[in-house]
Write a protein that binds this DNA or RNA. Structure first.
Length: 197
DNA sequence: ACATGGATTCGCT
DNA sequence: GCGAATCCATGTT
């Protein structure tokens, strides 16, 4: 097992997003370790991509996307859920990969406890399915904004050498994005039950 | 200062 | 399938 290095993220999101499928996301808390296999990602590709938060240029909220690859872009959406992204490409190029779903591997009881603490979300078998629940289960919040995932000891990605069969689909929840809403920039592991709808 | 709306999820119809 | 919950960045008074 090796941790993904900065080099992995220093390329276009459209290449890094499908490559992250089958990798293991590991979250180390003071109460224990939670891990899961990445089964669903989406690519957000720069200012031209109308679904990307960088579509209106650099702002206080999205500035980390303009920074170095491998840093975490996490933000609150709809007042109650966090979304977890990893910045890709190079500095000044605002691209990122959204992690949408994990297949639980380790620390499942701890993850369910985190969800329960979060309150609004049920801790059922789909507890890492969907970006909001995923962040709640992993106890991720704004304090991880701009964390370097390639050097942090609290969260990292491991390469287990798996090459899953990949499917592409349209992205979710971006109906406003005009022609970009139909781009096949969502990547999933084929036939995996933990992929969200 | 205030109004607006979003890369979501749940629960009810 | 639709509305509510609910925060904060952003754009407009």
């Amino acid at each position: 097992m090796k941790h993904l290095e900065k080099k992995f993220f220093e390329r276009p999101a459209l290449e890094a997003a499908p490559d992250l499928l089958g990798k293991i996301l590991v979250r180390k808390t003071d109460k224990g370790i939670i891990s899961g296999r990445i089964v669903e990602t989406e690519a957000y590709v720069g200012e031209e991509d109308l679904a990307c938060h960088a579509r209106c240029g650099k702002t206080e909220r999205n500035k980390v996307m303009y920074g170095p690859a491998g840093h975490i872009y996490i933000y609150l959406i709809y007042g109650m859920y966090y979304n977890f992204n990893i910045v890709t490409a190079k500095e000044h190029v605002p691209e990122a990969v959204l992690i949408r779903a994990l297949e639980p591997i380790g620390g499942i009881e701890l993850a369910k406890k985190n969800l329960k603490k979060f309150g609004r979300v049920r801790a059922d078998k789909d507890f890492m399915k969907g970006p909001g629940k995923l962040c709640a289960a992993l106890d991720l919040d704004k304090s991880f904004y701009d964390t370097d995932i390639t050097s942090s000891d609290k969260i990292w990605v491991e390469d287990v050498g798996e090459k899953p069969e990949i499917e592409t689909a349209k992205r979710i929840g971006i109906d406003y994005a005009d022609i970009y809403r139909d781009k096949p920039w969502r990547f999933t592991i084929k036939d995996n039950q933990f992929v969200s709808k």
